[in-house]
């Protein structure tokens, strides 16, 4: 500061030069702390993961560079199963929870005493941590003694092994996820709906548009940005939520509920195969990154942003 006050009497040109340099420095100085954290905790680990995925390490052998980790990964039947399961899981959770969330949002759009209570009820699962929700569902899904089988028995449906039958386990996991996420997505849609001008809807009404027409011609197109955002969030969730699998099935029975993230965990911590785990991370994150860009781009093209 002392240096700065001392410069006031100097020629104009020099001040201008300094004037150009100083904001540049200040800006970077201000960005430096965040940049350090960003590099230390985001970019550096990314580099490390890529490096690990390219390091081939045998038992007691010397490590060397190569693509063998990727080759092993693509030949691994468990990885293929995890990818297929994850795709089913993604489709099975994203579509129903988005449709349900949108239905709830439209139905509970008006604020009355009843709808506020109902909104809270729908959004409630969002407040429960996934681990706790999974522990609750462990009891709900208990064959015969659980809540679900107890009531199903009253309508004559026999004991079902919800989590222990390979053909049902993934469906049960999907059901929990839809229950858990739907209310969360509803909140986004409610916010989106609040942003749609009422006069547009009124004008359409006067012109004789029915509720269905109004929904598909006005509400849905104007919800485009919200939809795009929620879709990306839901896609990320489908790949990054793993708590309920760890609590309920450990990927079983017979790999029926193994997902990519759980596969990475198994490779890294059960088989101590860091190379495979890193390769799987690189592949899945790369895929997700590409998917996000493509989906955001293509969705944005068809979206009406208000100006």
């Amino acid at each position: 500061m002392v240096a700065l006050t001392g410069t006031t009497e100097r020629p104009v040109i020099r001040t201008r030069v300094r004037g150009r340099v100083r904001p540049w420095l200040t800006a970077y100085a201000l960005l430096l702390p965040s940049a350090l954290f960003l590099f230390g905790f985001t970019y550096w680990p990314v580099v490390q993961v890529i490096r690990c995925s390219l390091t081939v390490r045998g038992f007691r052998g010397a490590a060397h560079w190569g693509l063998q980790n990727y080759a092993r990964l693509f030949n691994d039947r468990h990885f293929a199963t995890a990818v297929v399961n994850n795709l089913i899981y993604a489709a099975g959770t994203i579509i129903p929870s988005l449709v349900l969330a949108l239905l709830f949002a439209v139905a509970l759009k008006e604020t009355t005493r009843l709808t506020s209570v109902l909104r809270t009820l729908v959004a409630l699962p969002m407040l429960i941590p996934l681990v706790a929700a999974a522990s609750l569902f462990a009891f709900i899904f208990l064959p015969n003694a659980g809540l679900l089988d107890h009531y199903l028995a009253k309508i004559g449906i026999a004991e079902t092994n919800w989590l222990g039958d390979p053909s049902l386990a993934l469906g049960s996991i999907i059901a929990i996820t839809v229950w858990k996420n739907c209310g969360y997505y509803m909140l986004f849609f409610l916010a989106g709906l609040a942003g749609i001008p009422q006069d547009l809807l009124d004008a359409a009404k006067i012109d004789g548009a029915g509720p269905v027409q109004r929904f598909f011609r006005i509400t849905l197109p104007l919800l485009g940005p919200t939809l795009a955002f929620v879709l990306v969030i839901a896609t990320l969730n489908a790949l990054t939520q793993v708590d309920h699998i760890i609590v309920l099935t450990q990927g079983g029975p017979s790999d029926a509920t193994a997902m990519i993230l759980f596969y990475i965990y198994q490779q890294a911590h059960q088989n101590f195969d860091v190379g495979m785990a890193s390769a799987a991370t690189v592949v899945s994150v790369g895929f997700l990154f590409a998917l996000s860009i493509v989906s955001l781009r293509s969705l944005e093209r068809g979206i009406h942003y208000e100006t």
């Binding site: 462990a138 009891f139 208990l142 064959p143 003694a145 092994n161 222990g164 390979p166 079983g252």
Partner: peptide
């Protein structure tokens, strides 16, 4: 029972006489 039963389900069933 067919399929996989977890420890909780086994003990619960045993305690309940099932």
């Amino acid at each position: 029972p067919e399929g996989v039963t977890d420890t909780n389900a086994v003990t619960t069933a045993f305690f309940q006489g099932r």
